[in-house]
Amino acid sequence: MNPFSHIDLRVTNLERALPFYEKFLPELGFTQTFHSKNWNVFATEGNLPSVAYFAITEDSSHKPNGNLIGFWAKDRWEVDRFAQLVKEIGGKITSGPKIFPISATYYAFYFEDPCGNQYEIVHRLN
């Protein structure tokens, strides 16, 4: 069983961040939307609440910190494809894509959303 349920994410400026997430999250499989006045929810296929989802809300006082959310990629090509997408939709790549000294097959890139929240996309064989 995958214990992942959801992520509740704060962004400092929803108007700036939402276009990024509307293009990024569907590429990760969060293809259903359940938006309300205060939350923009992107879910995987299936029925809430039993599917993984990513909920975004605006909090102008939010301060991005050292927290990082990581996502798997099926291969190196997919890591590179996501890196290109992130550049095109307004994210900031902070490192990679490249092999990192975590293991001989740890191929990843790190990036920030338009509000400074940190992420990683990784492919790793061992």
Results as ranks from 00 to 15, higher is better:
58 E>V: 01
82 F>R: 05
74 K>S: 11
64 P>R: 08
84 Q>P: 00
91 G>L: 01
59 D>E: 12
11 V>I: 04
124 R>H: 14
105 T>C: 00
122 V>Q: 09
41 V>A: 08
45 E>D: 14
125 L>F: 08
64 P>L: 06
123 H>P: 01
1 M>I: 14
103 S>P: 00
119 Y>M: 00
73 A>I: 12
57 T>L: 09
117 N>K: 06
31 T>S: 05
118 Q>S: 14
118 Q>I: 02
99 I>K: 10
15 E>Q: 15
28 L>Y: 11
19 P>S: 11
126 N>F: 08
59 D>S: 06
120 E>A: 04
124 R>N: 15
77 W>M: 11
83 A>M: 01
22 E>C: 05
123 H>N: 08
20 F>D: 02
47 N>Q: 13
121 I>H: 02
125 L>V: 13
82 F>T: 05
121 I>L: 05
63 K>A: 11
17 A>Y: 11
106 Y>C: 06
51 V>A: 06
14 L>C: 09
93 I>H: 10
120 E>H: 06
34 F>G: 04
25 L>D: 10
81 R>M: 09
89 I>A: 00
14 L>M: 11
42 F>C: 04
4 F>R: 04
20 F>T: 08
15 E>C: 07
40 N>E: 12
5 S>A: 13
108 A>Y: 01
99 I>R: 10
54 F>M: 03
35 H>E: 07
72 W>P: 06
44 T>W: 01
53 Y>R: 14
46 G>P: 06
110 Y>K: 08
83 A>I: 04
7 I>N: 08
45 E>V: 14
57 T>W: 08
79 V>S: 04
120 E>N: 11
110 Y>C: 03
89 I>V: 01
50 S>K: 14
103 S>I: 03
14 L>K: 07
94 T>D: 11
56 I>Y: 10
36 S>N: 12
5 S>V: 06
80 D>E: 12
123 H>K: 09
61 S>T: 14
57 T>V: 04
88 E>N: 10
47 N>E: 15
29 G>Y: 12
95 S>G: 09
102 I>K: 07
38 N>D: 15
101 P>V: 00
111 F>T: 03
107 Y>A: 01
4 F>C: 06
97 P>N: 02
16 R>V: 15
19 P>T: 15
105 T>Q: 02
123 H>A: 10
123 H>Y: 15
23 K>Q: 14
107 Y>N: 05
88 E>A: 05
10 R>Y: 15
87 K>R: 14
28 L>S: 07
65 N>G: 14
76 R>Q: 10
108 A>H: 05
108 A>C: 00
36 S>W: 04
122 V>G: 02
81 R>C: 01
98 K>N: 11
62 H>G: 05
67 N>T: 12
91 G>C: 00
5 S>C: 11
126 N>D: 15
121 I>A: 00
26 P>R: 12
70 G>V: 04
31 T>P: 00
69 I>H: 08
98 K>F: 01
18 L>Q: 13
67 N>P: 02
98 K>G: 07
111 F>M: 01
38 N>H: 13
116 G>T: 00
74 K>H: 07
119 Y>G: 03
14 L>P: 02
22 E>R: 09
110 Y>E: 06
9 L>N: 06
87 K>E: 12
73 A>W: 12
59 D>V: 05
80 D>L: 04
11 V>M: 03
25 L>E: 09
10 R>N: 15
22 E>F: 05
83 A>N: 01
3 P>Q: 15
81 R>F: 02
34 F>I: 11
21 Y>G: 03
2 N>P: 15
43 A>N: 09
34 F>H: 14
9 L>I: 09
106 Y>D: 11
